[in-house]
Measured scan of single mutants.
Amino acid sequence: MATGGRRGAAAAPLLVAVAALLLGAAGHLYPGEVCPGMDIRNNLTRLHELENCSVIEGHLQILLMFKTRPEDFRDLSFPKLIMITDYLLLFRVYGLESLKDLFPNLTVIRGSRLFFNYALVIFEMVHLKELGLYNLMNITRGSVRIEKNNELCYLATIDWSRILDSVEDNYIVLNKDDNEECGDICPGTAKGKTNCPATVINGQFVERCWTHSHCQKVCPTICKSHGCTAEGLCCHSECLGNCSQPDDPTKCVACRNFYLDGRCVETCPPPYYHFQDWRCVNFSFCQDLHHKCKNSRRQGCHQYVIHNNKCIPECPSGYTMNSSNLLCTPCLGPCPKVCHLLEGEKTIDSVTSAQELRGCTVINGSLIINIRGGNNLAAELEANLGLIEEISGYLKIRRSYALVSLSFFRKLRLIRGETLEIGNYSFYALDNQNLRQLWDWSKHNLTITQGKLFFHYNPKLCLSEIHKMEEVSGTKGRQERNDIALKTNGDQASCENELLKFSYIRTSFDKI
């Protein structure tokens, strides 16, 4: 039985969820670079991206490699990797027998973001014989899940209580170790020597080791999670996991709180800001991140802002960003909400898709409305799209047979046209069989910064309504002859009103 693990408890099935942008060198404390989270699957090609990484700022997932063999891993080693800020997950990587050479110096898994409450997941690794993470000293947050690894031993010899604050939620089941077939031998045991430290858990006094050649490092209890030197002297209180010299914040392997210019500090002093819960960055760093993602459509890219001495992905609820200094300031009234469309555009074809934009005031991208039916549609669209004030790209209304009016965009005031449909149009209306009105132009103002209007096959939309939009939106004169079809717009509506004058002759039985 794995020490510190839980057996036999019912657990939810383990679901495996399925960018080499360097964020800056980590400095003297770390020998390499800070790398983003990685999802490495199918083959070993991307694994080489770990070569210079000291910190993975995010998670590391290595999974679904069915053609790899043990010899493929023999020359692979990433000794610079010290810390993973989120979680480490391995799933069905064939041929991998140990992690001792792959990650010989991995010391800390912070667990800032977890995989279903777990910071370390080893699942269905069919050839893994031992973990071998002999320098792993601290899992700051989260638990361990090690399950269905039929060859995995050296679990009962690990004292997880020396690595985690609590072992109650560890789930370590259905491994070879369960069948008591392992016969784990710690260093020196074969020669009758006791080389590794022994600890007591559940009444068992057991030597602690990761492999037959690597003991588990056990520091004096007084050192807590700070770690200790090879001689057993406690590291500085700002260290986490390990250090090369005692009581020196510049000799830590990793930091308990924050890293700044080669030393570990309790908090980031001005003019620095907390970033990702582990390091200090200056304003320029946060500003660069903001600008890199301002026009990016890459998933996970955030326009970072500053709030409460932190550089964070977005302002919290009730705050909006001051564009001059990136500071989050309290909103006066309802907060603006910028919604970034991942692929640059979004099609609204149902109430469900409209709900995804609920509360958005600025759309960074283009909207395509293609709704053919739905219950209580006008009210639903207004509830979900009615706060949109600005669209950076274009607005396209296409084959939306259920629409009679666009009044559900009740606050839309600006279409920038930074991206144009077919390279020309910022407003595009095609084949809307029941569209009769755009907006009530006596109450609604709309500016279209650039781009043209396109109207074709809107049989109940009168040309007068379209011409009014040209005047109000500032697009009059931009359109070419064929942009607004004269014969297919309003051709099934009563669009022309003329005053009919009647004269009559009164007659009676005795007068003409």
Rank of each mutant, 00 (worst) to 15 (best):
residue 29 L to H: 15
residue 33 E to H: 11
residue 34 V to S: 04
residue 37 G to T: 14
residue 45 T to V: 12
residue 49 E to K: 15
residue 49 E to I: 10
residue 50 L to Y: 03
residue 53 C to P: 00
residue 53 C to R: 00
residue 54 S to N: 15
residue 55 V to D: 02
residue 55 V to P: 02
residue 57 E to G: 08
residue 57 E to P: 00
residue 57 E to H: 10
residue 57 E to V: 11
residue 59 H to A: 06
residue 59 H to L: 00
residue 59 H to T: 01
residue 61 Q to V: 00
residue 62 I to C: 00
residue 64 L to D: 00
residue 69 R to F: 08
residue 70 P to Y: 05
residue 70 P to L: 09
residue 70 P to K: 15
residue 71 E to N: 13
residue 75 D to Q: 09
residue 79 P to Y: 03
residue 80 K to S: 10
residue 82 I to W: 12
residue 83 M to V: 08
residue 85 T to V: 07
residue 87 Y to C: 00
residue 88 L to H: 00
residue 88 L to Q: 01
residue 89 L to G: 00
residue 91 F to I: 00
residue 91 F to P: 00
residue 91 F to G: 00
residue 95 G to Q: 12
residue 96 L to C: 08
residue 97 E to T: 13
residue 98 S to I: 02
residue 98 S to V: 02
residue 99 L to T: 05
residue 99 L to D: 00
residue 100 K to H: 15
residue 100 K to N: 14
residue 103 F to G: 00
residue 104 P to R: 02
residue 108 V to T: 12
residue 111 G to E: 00
residue 115 F to R: 01
residue 118 Y to W: 01
residue 119 A to G: 06
residue 120 L to C: 05
residue 121 V to G: 00
residue 122 I to K: 00
residue 123 F to Y: 13
residue 124 E to C: 00
residue 128 L to R: 03
residue 130 E to H: 08
residue 131 L to R: 00
residue 131 L to S: 01
residue 133 L to E: 00
residue 137 M to T: 06
residue 137 M to G: 10
residue 138 N to A: 10
residue 139 I to W: 00
residue 141 R to K: 02
residue 141 R to E: 04
residue 142 G to F: 00
residue 143 S to A: 12
residue 144 V to R: 01
residue 146 I to H: 00
residue 147 E to F: 01
residue 148 K to L: 14
residue 151 E to R: 12
residue 155 L to K: 03
residue 157 T to M: 01
residue 157 T to N: 11
residue 157 T to Y: 06
residue 158 I to C: 04
residue 159 D to W: 15
residue 159 D to L: 08
residue 161 S to W: 10
residue 163 I to F: 03
residue 166 S to V: 14
residue 167 V to R: 05
residue 169 D to H: 15
residue 169 D to N: 11
residue 170 N to R: 11
residue 172 I to G: 01
residue 173 V to P: 04
residue 173 V to C: 14
residue 173 V to H: 15
residue 174 L to A: 11
residue 174 L to N: 05
residue 176 K to T: 11
residue 176 K to P: 03
residue 178 D to N: 09
residue 179 N to F: 06
residue 179 N to Q: 09
residue 179 N to S: 06
residue 182 C to R: 00
residue 182 C to K: 05
residue 184 D to M: 15
residue 184 D to Q: 12
residue 186 C to L: 04
residue 187 P to L: 12
residue 187 P to A: 13
residue 188 G to L: 09
residue 193 K to A: 10
residue 195 N to V: 14
residue 196 C to L: 04
residue 197 P to K: 14
residue 200 V to C: 14
residue 200 V to K: 02
residue 201 I to P: 10
residue 202 N to T: 10
residue 204 Q to A: 13
residue 204 Q to R: 10
residue 206 V to G: 14
residue 210 W to P: 01
residue 211 T to Y: 02
residue 213 S to R: 10
residue 215 C to G: 01
residue 216 Q to M: 08
residue 218 V to L: 07
residue 220 P to L: 09
residue 222 I to F: 02
residue 223 C to S: 00
residue 224 K to W: 04
residue 232 G to W: 02
residue 232 G to C: 11
residue 234 C to I: 08
residue 234 C to G: 01
residue 235 C to Q: 00
residue 236 H to T: 02
residue 236 H to R: 02
residue 240 L to S: 09
residue 241 G to I: 02
residue 242 N to D: 05
residue 244 S to F: 09
residue 244 S to M: 14
residue 247 D to M: 05
residue 247 D to I: 00
residue 250 T to N: 13
residue 250 T to S: 12
residue 251 K to L: 07
residue 255 C to P: 00
residue 256 R to M: 11
residue 256 R to D: 06
residue 257 N to D: 04
residue 258 F to M: 09
residue 259 Y to S: 01
residue 260 L to S: 13
residue 262 G to C: 02
residue 270 P to R: 10
residue 275 F to C: 00
residue 275 F to P: 00
residue 276 Q to E: 06
residue 277 D to L: 10
residue 278 W to R: 00
residue 280 C to H: 01
residue 280 C to S: 00
residue 281 V to M: 01
residue 286 C to Y: 06
residue 287 Q to A: 15
residue 287 Q to G: 12
residue 288 D to N: 13
residue 293 C to S: 07
residue 298 R to H: 02
residue 299 Q to F: 10
residue 299 Q to L: 13
residue 300 G to A: 10
residue 301 C to I: 00
residue 302 H to W: 11
residue 303 Q to F: 13
residue 304 Y to R: 06
residue 304 Y to T: 12
residue 305 V to R: 09
residue 305 V to E: 02
residue 305 V to G: 09
residue 305 V to M: 06
residue 306 I to T: 05
residue 306 I to V: 12
residue 306 I to K: 03
residue 308 N to S: 07
residue 308 N to P: 04
residue 309 N to H: 09
residue 313 P to Y: 06
residue 313 P to A: 14
residue 314 E to T: 10
residue 314 E to P: 03
residue 315 C to K: 00
residue 315 C to P: 07
residue 318 G to E: 06
residue 322 N to F: 04
residue 323 S to D: 14
residue 324 S to I: 01
residue 326 L to Q: 12
residue 328 C to S: 01
residue 328 C to F: 02
residue 328 C to L: 02
residue 333 G to N: 15
residue 334 P to D: 09
residue 335 C to V: 01
residue 336 P to L: 12
